[in-house]
Simulated assay, not measured.
Amino acid sequence: MKKFAAGAAGMMLMLTAGLFLWIGADGQDVPLPAAPPPPEKIDPEILPEAQVDAETIGPAPPKAYKPSREEMRFNRYDRNGDEIITRLEMMSSRTDAFRKLDKDGNNLLTFEEWAVSTSDRFAGADRDGNSQLTRTEFRSTRPKRSAPKCKC
């Protein structure tokens, strides 16, 4: 019981001290410092220039990973970022295209399945087999347009 009473008395003292500090800090008017003057405009001609053979300090910064165009297309469909595109993630109007891409029929599209189909599409468009697509060859990779569905 003595420990409880001592703890309660300690809490009351701490609350009282906090109240006095709060009231004391509220009553003080602390002037805000004046804002510094705006920086002077510097003429770009007088800025120092680095020499061509100047030493660099430290290692070169690492280059950021830039995903390929196919990886960006794949990531557009992979909404939850688990490296697998499910049927729900694919647009509902694309179920036939999904079935064609899903080679093993498990309703999951891996990046490898996606890349194989794209590689096959590239090989089909590369008529002369030089691993380069001309504008004419690239034009053949465009999806066929369907007639507009108009309820006019």
Rank of each mutant, 00 (worst) to 15 (best):
K3C: 04
K3I: 08
K3D: 05
A5D: 01
A6S: 04
A6R: 03
G7M: 11
A8W: 09
A9L: 14
G10P: 02
M12G: 05
L13E: 07
M14N: 08
L15S: 14
L15P: 03
T16K: 11
G18T: 12
L19R: 02
F20D: 03
F20M: 13
F20I: 13
W22K: 12
I23K: 14
I23Y: 10
G24S: 15
A25G: 14
D26T: 12
G27W: 15
G27N: 15
D29A: 15
V30R: 12
P31R: 03
P31C: 07
A35L: 06
A35N: 11
P37I: 05
P37S: 06
P37T: 06
P38Q: 02
P39Q: 01
E40N: 01
K41N: 09
E45Q: 14
L47H: 09
P48F: 05
P48M: 04
E49V: 13
A50C: 05
Q51N: 07
D53H: 01
D53V: 03
A54C: 03
A54H: 01
E55Q: 15
T56N: 08
I57R: 11
I57V: 05
G58V: 06
G58P: 01
P59I: 08
P59M: 11
A60L: 15
P61L: 10
K63F: 11
K63Q: 14
A64F: 14
A64I: 15
Y65R: 07
K66C: 02
K66M: 09
P67K: 01
R69D: 00
E70R: 06
E70W: 04
M72H: 00
M72I: 00
R73Q: 02
F74K: 02
Y77W: 12
Y77N: 07
D78R: 00
N80H: 14
N80E: 10
I84H: 15
I85R: 04
T86M: 12
R87I: 09
R87Q: 09
E89H: 07
E89V: 04
E89R: 02
M90W: 14
M91N: 13
S92K: 11
T95E: 12
T95L: 03
D96H: 02
D96S: 10
R99L: 06
K100P: 01
L101Q: 06
L101S: 08
D102I: 01
D102L: 00
K103G: 12
G105C: 04
N106D: 14
N107W: 00
L108T: 15
L109V: 05
T110C: 06
T110P: 02
T110Q: 10
F111I: 15
E112W: 08
E112F: 06
W114G: 04
V116G: 02
V116R: 11
V116H: 08
S117I: 10
T118P: 00
S119I: 09
S119E: 05
S119L: 03
S119C: 00
D120C: 03
R121E: 08
R121H: 04
A123L: 05
A123F: 01
A125T: 00
A125F: 01
D126N: 11
D126T: 05
R127Y: 13
R127T: 15
N130G: 07
N130C: 05
S131T: 07
Q132A: 15
L133H: 00
T134H: 04
T134Q: 07
T134M: 02
R135E: 07
R135V: 12
E137Q: 05
F138Q: 08
S140P: 00
